[in-house]
């Protein structure tokens, strides 16, 4: 783990894929919290739906031994983020708290970052978001409504982090683990998503990330993500011995 963090916190998330049921609760909670535009039918048909967190579903095998695998994917908040160096206007950068930040007012919409992201978690606003007047009532006042032509992505609910930090400061105390929850981890009914401070050795995420099921997506890219996955367990899986091939490649 890198420890060159200057900030006090290093926000991270542990996703227990074994507990994810694919129920989409996180998707809607995120959408509601972060004023994500309504994905109209047209957006879906043109492959331009915006979803800061999504539950991907993969098929494995064929009927009747078919398995469906779910995996929630959101911005991985990489320490070595490929999206950051390509931005010509510094609209995305890494802050001292381990967040990969998207600054909407700086973004000019080159979409380089989206091309650079290996997880496809960055979404471009091809259209002005449209809400009927009355739906504006439920927009979250803590989150900027993104206009057309800019990039958006998961912010680890930075508005909740700010609010939590502010409250702790006001009450003159340290943050308590679990006090700050992202909308998705709050919603997740099976607690498959756990959010917290990776720098705090006693936090739930720190303890979970040392599990032997821990892995990160695309390890060969060495992105050092702050989102850690715990692998799915399938008691039906045949574990294949792999000693045979050990020396067969060079």
């Amino acid at each position: 783990m890198t420890t060159n963090k200057t900030g006090k916190q290093n926000w991270g998330m542990v996703v227990d894929v074994d507990k994810c049921t694919g129920c989409q609760a996180c998707v809607l909670a995120c959408q509601s919290e972060n004023n994500v535009p309504i994905n109209t039918q047209e957006r879906f048909e043109r492959g331009r739906a915006i979803s800061w967190i999504r539950v991907e579903r993969y098929w494995e095998g064929n009927y009747p031994d078919v398995k469906a695998r779910f995996i929630p994917i959101m911005c991985q908040h990489c320490e070595n983020a490929p999206c950051e160096p390509v931005c010509p206007v510094y609209a995305t950068y890494h802050n001292s708290e381990g967040l990969n930040v998207q600054v909407y007012n700086r973004c000019v919409g080159t979409r380089y970052c989206a091309n650079g992201c290996p997880f496809t978690v960055r979404f471009f606003n091809y259209w002005e978001p449209v809400w009927p007047e009355s739906f504006r009532n439920h927009l979250n006042p803590d989150v900027t409504v993104r206009s057309r032509g800019i990039m958006e992505k998961c912010s680890f609910c930075v508005q909740r982090i700010r609010r939590g930090v502010r409250t702790a400061k006001k009450e003159n105390r340290d943050l308590i683990d679990g006090e700050i929850q992202t909308a998705c981890s709050q919603a997740c009914p099976t607690s498959a998503l756990v959010f917290g401070d990776l720098n705090d050795n006693n936090s739930a995420v720190s303890k979970m990330k040392h599990d032997e099921r821990t892995y990160k997506l695309l390890p060969h890219l060495n992105l050092d993500q702050n989102v850690v996955y715990l692998a799915k367990v399938d008691p039906e899986k045949k574990i294949e011995s792999h000693s045979v091939e050990s020396g067969s490649h060079d």
């Binding site: 001292s96 967040l99 930040v101 600054v103 007012n105 900027t144 912010s155 930075v158």
Partner: peptide, 8 residues
């Protein structure tokens, strides 16, 4: 002076 302190 972190951008995200005010812009989110």
């Amino acid at each position: 002076t972190d951008c995200v302190v005010c812009h989110h």
